[in-house]
Amino acid sequence: MKIAIIDYNAGNVRSVLYAMERLGIAADLTADHQRIREADKVIFPGVGEARTTMHYLRARGLDELICSLTQPVLGICLGMQLLCEHSEENDTDCLGIIPQRVIRFQPKAGEKVPHMGWNQIKVGEGSWLDPALDGEYVYFVHSYFAEIGPYTAGETDYIQPFSSVMRKDNFYATQFHPEKSGAVGRRILEGFLKV
C-alpha cells in the first residue's frame, strides 16, 4: 500500500511520518502532485495557522489537488479544519470539501484555550472509527473547532461539544493527533489504513 503524506509548511509532518514508520509503512512525504495522486491513501497533516497555510497550499496548487482526490484522505488537526468551508482563524476560506464552519472556543472564566491535552472521544454507530474506541483518550492541541453537524463521526466535550472526528465521502478527519495519541492513536491510524 502506497501512503502519501502531503509535505508542506505544517509543523510536525515528521511525527506522522514516524507514526507510519512504527506501523511498518514507509510513507512518501511529498508535495509532488503526481505522487500524491497515485497513492492508495493520502494523509493531510497540519499544525499552524489557517490563513498562512491556505495561502501556501494555493500557491502550489495543492488546494485543487486535494479537492480532486478520490482515494481515502485523512485530515489531521489543522488538516481537518482546512477540509471545512471556512475558519474564523483570520477569516479564512478553506477547501470547502466538508460544508462546515470552524469557529473559536469562547472560554468562560477559568477555562483555558488552547484545548491542550488528553480528552475523550465519543464514537457513535456508523462512524469510521471502531466503536470500541468510545470513551478513549486522545491528544488535542487547538483553539478552533468544527461544530457538530451532519459530517460529525465522533465528538468531544470541551467548553462545548464539538466534532473531533469527521467524514464526508472519501475524506476522513480527526481534530486530535492520532500520531501523538499512544496506543489508541495507533489503532485509529490502523483503522484508516483499512478503510
Binding site: 515528521r14 511525527s15 514516524y18 507514526a19 514508520e21 512504527r22 491528544y139 492541541v141 493527533h177 500520531e179 501523538k180 495519541s181 499512544g182 496506543a183 492513536g185 495507533r186
Partner: peptide
C-alpha cells in the same frame, strides 16, 4: 524520541 515515542 519522535521516532520511538507516540506521546507528545
Amino acid at each position: 524520541i519522535a521516532r520511538h515515542l507516540s506521546i507528545p
